[in-house]
Design a protein around this nucleic acid. Structure first.
Lengths: 151, 151
DNA sequence: GTATATTAAGTGCATATACTCCTATTGTTC
DNA sequence: GAACAATAGGAGTATATGCACTTAATATAC
């Protein structure tokens, strides 16, 4: 949406759609990060996923799903692309139903290259938005998600 | 990412990635809205796009791209699905390069059905998050995007 | 007025995302 | 320990998203 509503005085006012606003913000910010990591040949989402694996390895598909609030089947496909490029290795876990994901040396090296680009971008955004405002924003985002998951 | 960094005391601390956080939030919130409008047979993004058309018709593809911060080619495809289901009508503009998008009666009726569902969801989220907190969040999101576009 | 630049839009390709089934493995119950 | 439930994961299908490239129409320069 956005949609129109009526306020107490029956005067039309624009009401902001939570879904639209957040998706739009995600698009805009993703563009920035995508552009920055493009020289590496990957998208921000892929580097991100690699980073999550790095900090939680070994990790299962369901584990990654919980960490990223992403559907398992989405991760299956996203992981397959990283595996194809030998950035991660996927093996069967002790529980034979599970798959265990770890970074390869290639993956580690890619992350090492990505890190300074990422830091630069974070700094750039902090510089534009202001450290406190950005911090507040992300805090609010996380807080909001926590409340929603509780409910 | 998220990634790890070092703070002033060289103690490892998690640094929040703007891109990851916003995409995650968008995923979580989109799930909620998708679930709500599922009985209508459409996704939240489609209802959203329909709503943007409704409030700006007649509107060109590039116009919608600017309104939603979406790539033009993304809109070409998303609009095609709405056109297929006769929710919108796309005609050539006076400038023969442009395409003019308007809602059909079908589209108007679908939006009318979606509106109460959308309102209910907004209320639900307001109830969970708190009106002031949510308002602050969306304000911060918009403010942040504005600053980024200026830069 | 023609050559060139700009603008609006679309195609091919690739990735991101999630729902509905489906299979394989593990856990539970009796 | 066999029947059944629960869990981990994947395949098919569909939409969302954006980049590089292309085409068509308009605007501009001379």
């Amino acid at each position: 949406m956005p949609h129109q509503g009526l306020n107490k005085n029956n005067i039309q006012e624009k009401e902001v759609c939570v879904c639209f606003s957040l998706r739009k913000a995600a698009r805009v910010i993703t563009q920035i990060y995508d552009e920055v990591v493009r020289p590496l040949g990957y998208k921000a989402t892929q580097i991100t996923l690699l980073g999550v694996v790095n900090q939680n390895q070994p990790v299962t598909v369901t584990g990654l799903a919980a960490l990223t609030d992403t559907d398992r089947t989405t991760l299956t496909r996203n992981l397959k692309l990283l595996e194809r490029d030998q950035l991660i290795r996927i093996t069967r876990g002790q529980d034979r139903r599970q798959r265990s994901v770890v970074l390869t040396e290639n993956g580690r090296q890619l992350l090492a290259k990505a890190y300074p680009l990422w830091r630069e971008t974070q700094k750039r955004i902090i510089h534009i938005v202001g450290e406190k405002d950005l911090y507040d924003l992300l805090l609010k985002v996380n807080h909001t998600l926590e409340k929603i998951k509780e409910a």
